[in-house]
Amino acid sequence: MGNSNTALNFGAGPAKLPREVLQEVQAELLSYQDSGMSIMEMSHRSAEYSKINKDAQQSIRELLKVPDNYRILFMQGGGVGAFAAVAMNLINRTGTADYAVTGTWSASAVKEAQKYGKVNLVFPKADKPGSIPDQSTWNCDPNASYLYYCDNETVDGVEFPEIPSNPFNVPLVADMSSSIMTKRVDVSKFGVIFGGAQKNIGPAGVVFVIIREDLLGKPMDICPSVMNFTHIDKCNSVHNTPATLSVYIMEKVLRWITANGGVEGMEKQSFAKSDLLYKTIANSNQFYSSPIDENVRSRINIPFRVGGVNGNEELEALFLEKAEKLKMYQLKGHRSVGGMRASLYNAVSIEDVNSLVKFMLEFQKLHAV
């Protein structure tokens, strides 16, 4: 990782995959387990794929210490498809759901949920982006079918520092697309945890769903079978042809996480990487700046401006140009917020972050007024 022949990928997703995993995939691509066939050519009902599917589920269960009364599903449709699936599978209980909107993706989830029931926003849209209102101010509905939040907003760089309080003990639903396997989490506090794999645990194409068993069996009549959690569970995630290559690679990434200290090891690395970058920003005399409230700053997706608190677009364009010459890619912030963004997912090494910090310090030395 981080050698002169390797790009330093700070993209928000699809994101960097462990090099060891890619090499293993490369070695097996033409003939999986001496079968003479690629995994891409095998039946999803074959013994080989059935084992991959089972092993991937088991790795998630072991890494996150998932209790026995939870099921693990693999689906397609990406995070946006899951926004609709969550509502169609859960909102039927009371017809209403609570949503905490802290950024782009939770706002997108609301738009999907509103098609299927009544949505209550537990706090109004923030006056200033990059913050989470104190939970004592949240207006939760005791009649809600569930309370939904996005654990880490990839666009906005906002992360919940802890699991939100749940005053009425309704099922808690979390989008953990970008934070899964980066920190320990008490799964027993949740009704559903879901996310796209393409940030921390695999390539694009597969969505994981961890769901408590008592929440199965109550989908809306209009819920398509490919989004029906109950049906997907009964079919062990092979109702139709799944994204077999994506699940195969994900299973290897999960084994890589296990071999590299598990979730605890990833968490330790995550805090070390983000601390290094935030300290560089803080010590830059405002040449670099973070627009996010300090108590909710993401460890995983770090937006920052170059050339002052509000950024200098000319300097930011130059920053990206110089970074790419050093093979540091995908540092441009999301089009809706501008500036820079460094995504520090599990496969991004501390050496990668050290290289970025070294460049940032040199760039500041040359261009700070």
Rank of each mutant, 00 (worst) to 15 (best):
I132D: 06
Y116N: 02
L63E: 00
I91Q: 11
P164G: 13
G77L: 01
P164E: 12
R45G: 13
G78C: 11
Q76Y: 07
E48H: 02
N166K: 00
P164Y: 12
G78L: 08
Q114I: 03
P167D: 09
D55C: 04
A84K: 10
I60K: 00
D151Y: 13
S131R: 11
P161Y: 04
N169R: 15
N152V: 09
A144W: 07
T96F: 02
G103H: 09
L63K: 00
I91R: 07
G78V: 03
Q58H: 11
A126T: 13
P133G: 07
V101P: 05
L147R: 11
M40P: 04
T96G: 05
P161R: 05
M40S: 14
N169T: 06
N166L: 02
P164L: 12
I60D: 00
N143H: 13
S165W: 01
V158S: 08
R93Y: 11
V170T: 13
K51Q: 15
A174V: 03
Y99I: 14
F83R: 10
N69G: 01
W105M: 13
V66W: 00
L73W: 01
Q114M: 10
E112M: 04
G130Y: 05
G103N: 08
G81D: 04
A87G: 10
L64Q: 00
Y116A: 05
K111A: 10
F168Q: 10
S108P: 00
L73N: 02
M40R: 15
F160N: 08
K118N: 11
A84S: 14
C140V: 13
D55S: 11
E162H: 14
E159G: 05
E162I: 02
S136G: 14
F160T: 08
A97Y: 06
A100F: 04
E162C: 08
W138Q: 09
A107W: 06
Q58P: 02
V122A: 06
K128Q: 14
T154A: 15
A109D: 06
V86L: 12
F123M: 05
Q76D: 14
S165M: 13
A97P: 01
D151T: 08
T96R: 14
T102L: 12
V101C: 12
S106L: 03
V101F: 07
P133N: 11
A97E: 05
A174T: 03
D151L: 08
S38M: 06
G157M: 10
D98V: 03
N120T: 06
A109Q: 05
A87W: 04
S136K: 15
M42C: 10
Q76E: 14
G81S: 06
S131F: 02
V66D: 00
L172E: 05
E159D: 09
G157A: 10
T102E: 15
S145I: 01
P129Q: 07
V119R: 08
P133V: 08
T96K: 15
P167Y: 10
P164S: 13
P129G: 06
T96P: 02
E62Q: 06
I91L: 06
A109C: 05
H44R: 07
L63H: 00
A100V: 07
N143G: 04
N139Q: 15
I163L: 10
V66G: 03
H44D: 13
A109W: 02
A113M: 07
